[in-house]
């Protein structure tokens, strides 16, 4: 699956952004676990319920804070050439997607609050058969990609 053309990686700050969102989920899990513990003690529920939830929360936190962001970052590669956009990603299933430039109908970039805090943006390419995205690029790079695609897509304009 390795491909020498796939040179670009997503921005390193993405790792921190994903970790942050992982920590936020962890906070939510913690609140749920504590609430459950309080309710359990108050109403004499079996103790294994909060214990189980605590274990699940720990696993979830580990996955979201550490493992997933790391793997996701490691697996993501992309390349934008004159004729096509090539994406490679996927933690279990490794996907390599090719989108011919002439098939791109429009390009969006969007930012959630976490990505904005890190100055990152997600770029989405829409085709007539669904859309694909590159999850985290610096704002400057996202604009550049968007402009590049807009220009290339105009060059190779063709009917659907």
């Amino acid at each position: 699956m390795e491909n020498e053309r796939l040179t670009r990686r997503i921005d390193e700050k993405a790792l921190r952004a994903w970790r942050l969102s992982g920590w936020i989920s962890t906070g939510v899990y913690a609140v749920i676990t504590v609430a459950l513990l309080v309710v359990t003690l108050k109403f004499d529920w079996p103790i294994w319920i909060p214990v189980l939830v605590f274990i699940l929360a720990c696993i979830g936190a580990y996955l979201e804070v550490n493992l997933m962001p790391r793997l996701r970052y490691k697996q993501w590669r992309y390349a934008i050439t004159e004729h096509e956009i090539e994406l490679q990603h996927g933690i279990y299933f490794r996907k390599r997607t090719l989108i011919p430039m002439i098939r791109v109908q429009h390009v969006d970039s969007k930012q959630g609050p976490i990505l904005r805090a890190f100055g990152l943006a997600t770029v989405t390419f829409s085709t007539a058969a669904g859309s694909h995205e590159i999850p985290a690029l610096t704002e400057g790079r996202a604009d550049e990609v968007r402009r590049q695609i807009a220009q290339l897509a105009r060059l190779s304009d063709e009917e659907i």
């Binding site: 699956m1 996927g90 279990y92 299933f93 490794r94 996907k95 390599r96 997607t97 090719l98 989108i99 011919p100 098939r103 085709t127 007539a128 058969a129 669904g130 694909h132």
Partner: peptide, 19 residues
């Protein structure tokens, strides 16, 4: 007519050189 295409490989497939 192909809008996009994709080659997917799971670890099991990778071991057997399938995709």
């Amino acid at each position: 007519r192909i809008q996009w295409h994709e080659v997917t490989q799971s670890p099991i497939q990778a071991r057997r050189e399938l995709a």
